[in-house]
Nucleic acid binder design. Sequence first.
RNA 1: GGAGGGAUGGGAGAGUGGUUAAAUCCACCAGACUGUAAAUCUGGCGCCCGGAAGGGCUACGUAGGUUCGAAUCCUACUCCCUCCA
Length: 328
Amino acid sequence: MTNLPSDGVTPGKMLVVAGPTAVGKSSFGLEVARRFGGEIVSADSRQVFTGLDIGTAKASIAEQRAIPHHLVDIIEPDEDFGLAPFLDLVGDVVAGIQSRNKLPVVVGGSSQYVFALIEGWSPPRVPPNAELRAALELRVQADGPDALHAELAAADPEAAAKIDPRNVRRVIRALEVRQSEVSQSEKRQAATTEREATVAPRYTGALNKDTLAIGLTLPRKLLYERIDQRVDQMIEAGWLNEVEGLSQRGYGPELTAMSSIGYQELTEHLSGNLDLADAVQRIKNRTHKFARGQYVWLRRAKWLEWFEADEPGLASAIDRVGEWVAIP
RNA sequence: GGAGGGAUGGGAGAGUGGUUAAAUCCACCAGACUGUAAAUCUGGCGCCCGGAAGGGCUACGUAGGUUCGAAUCCUACUCCCUCCA
């Protein structure tokens, strides 16, 4: 705690806060940012969309005014986003914060993004090809998923071996990547260069002093209770109006943004096909499922330091961060 | 009071003599994942032994009965629903 730089943070550090939805990542992140001079970097595949505020549990205007937030509200609901675009952006954002001598506090709801950031993934830079996807989708309807998987096995045996034939979505993506590689093989050099432009790994077997990853957790039952409460609060806060507004602006359920938890169910309710009570229950259940999925990722993250998200747990997590921040 | 209909696993809901520990969906538990990831996909899910294969036990409102064999047929009882009075 002694000899802190004037701004409190040693340059080059990055803090990551992970954990299931509704565990309290955001408020912990804000608290840490407040105490140690940080800025929030959202690693969340849904908070990137403008207009999806209540249901994505975005930080309030006041909170965003008090502490800068990055990678929030960066695209319209009908735009594409994904892992690679995220990686393209975080690198600069994190570097920018560090260059201002502040602590980047990455708050991650999308575990895949957090993994990619920390482990330095280099996903194939092949953008989605809607036409190809639609065509392959038709193939599946006609010939069945196994036929498509067989096709992948012929084109890219390695990828095929890793993907369940029934997982049509991933089979299609693999074919998409394959096809792009083939058709642009002359450009491979350029692609390789581009790949190297993604973020450097933060984790290469052991975490270094520059990166700390805090995992927040709660007993399952308690977490579900918090999720349920939060969903009710979101409804009370006018979530339905928000969804109605989005629908009126023409954003339909076929968009990734509008297929997010809650947005889909409330859209269905607004179209008159679903009772509000049923919609709310579905939202709660789906959020439970989401949280479970987050745990599947997080449990295998060797680089996470876990803390209970209760009073004493959060206090010791703060202490831990303080300790780490002070390391020169 | 009379006439019908129904009671199935945590929930919804199939099944109408054996191949049924009982379809399917949900919930729940576990897992995969490198440009949709809040997505997509997989496995498990009565109890006991087993890594599994498999074995044992208990189950379809309650109590009896018919049968080699019943969630499925019969009888009585309990509860629920609809219609008539």
